[in-house]
Design a binder for these strands. Structure first.
Lengths: 220, 220
DNA sequence: ATATTTTTTTAGACCAGTCTAAACTTTTAT
DNA sequence: ATAAAAGTTTAGACTGGTCTAAAAAAATAT
């Protein structure tokens, strides 16, 4: 069984590798976990000793099949708990991240199955991120960055990249939350800000905000 | 903020002191937490340094007002989570202890308030134990040991002393769970086993089982 | 191609929590 | 009253996770 800390490292590495097999560097991990490179090196050795990652000195780490599976199980728990907090306990969308960060480490496969059933097998969490199934399969909705869409684009907000609390609060306030319909009306040349229509309300989004909003793409 | 371990010690000491100010011995704590006396001594020093308990060498520890309040907050969380698991996730009464043992350490006062509301402010957990309110007040239902009741006693099962999984499973199987009406029909002189009526079903309970069942007393 | 900068690793230390073994108190038995 | 037994504390060591400072490797600049 993995420790609390090992689980956090695994999750961080998975996210940095963008789910794929991309190599991840020591400093990236250190920054994400607010720790020092030396600590990361230690943990990396431990985790590769347990075959969750493969490690070549000075060249960073890659996740193994086993590591990915473990990371997905943690992500599944995180997203199910977030869904619970919003749907059942009436939390706001932007308040749940830190609590789910704790809940994701609770050890009980049965609990997670029952929670999943209680929530009626949700496909995505309140931020629009897909919830892996019990076998670690992720159903991906094709999506792209709002900032990169062409004028006249119409679709839905599916997710927000950054989980920074102030960004989430802001988006919540202006009503730009996952699931909402969105239309791209105009791009301002000067600061690259966007004028958009969210559920019939006109909004202006700055470049850094638009870059963090992911929207649905119709696969053709 | 208290560590996971500190919280567990505090809870154990509270239970051993039976909520009161009774002094608790080092070995008792060690046994309850499956640890060694030497480890307990170390932790005791730490906890008394933080004013959660008062400590006199060789004479055991007593909880301070602060310590009690902290312990009650953990117990409140534990019992609310147990209630959630049984009422909402359809767990059996006897499966929830270990999971609640983990969940009770989640840090978020707001979460507990919302959970309490979601469960409709329950007064007791599925084992019949009272749930302390947010200020640490416990509403006690007068109760006594089934084994000590006189012939013809009529009342309700309010709780089970021992939280051992095999005992809980057994009681669940025979239907002797908290909340159920119970009547004492007979005492067998030879082995001190009891013949009882639980919701109109005749059952025979051995002495060690009957000693662990707490039943309601009408205060006169 | 070599020097400089950046990144990563190693070495050694620290903290929390645990343990064993030995020393010390208190209690119990005679 | 004293010896033996039981319970508690201390001393010192270990593990998991962290850190700083120094050494080593890789990337970059000239």
């Amino acid at each position: 069984m993995l420790s609390y800390t090992e689980e956090n490292y695994l999750k961080a590495i998975y996210h940095l590798a963008q789910g794929g097999t991309k190599a991840v560097l020591t400093n990236e991990i250190a920054e994400m976990l607010n720790t020092k490179a030396a600590s990361v090196t230690d943990m990396i050795k431990k985790l590769s000793g347990k075959n969750f990652i493969s490690y070549e000195k000075y060249y960073g780490v890659k996740m193994t099949r086993q590591g990915k599976s473990e990371a997905l199980s943690i992500i599944r728990k995180h997203r199910l708990w977030e869904t619970f907090l919003v749907q059942k306990l009436q939390f706001n969308w932007d308040e749940v991240h830190d609590i789910a960060e704790q809940l994701e480490h609770i050890q009980s496969p049965l609990l997670i199955e029952k929670l999943d059933a209680f929530l009626n097998y949700p496909k995505a969490d309140p931020h629009g991120e897909p919830i892996p199934d019990r076998n670690g399969k992720v159903q991906v909705q094709a999506h792209g960055c709002l900032h990169e869409q062409t004028l006249g684009y119409k679709g839905c907000i599916v997710a927000v990249k950054d989980s920074d609390a102030t960004l989430l609060k802001y988006l919540n306030k202006i009503g730009a939350t996952p699931g909402k319909k969105i239309e791209l009306l105009n791009k301002e040349a000067y600061d690259e800000s966007l004028e958009v229509l969210v559920e019939n309300k006109k909004l202006s989004l700055s470049k850094p905000v638009a870059q963090n909003i992911l929207v649905s793409l119709t696969t053709r």
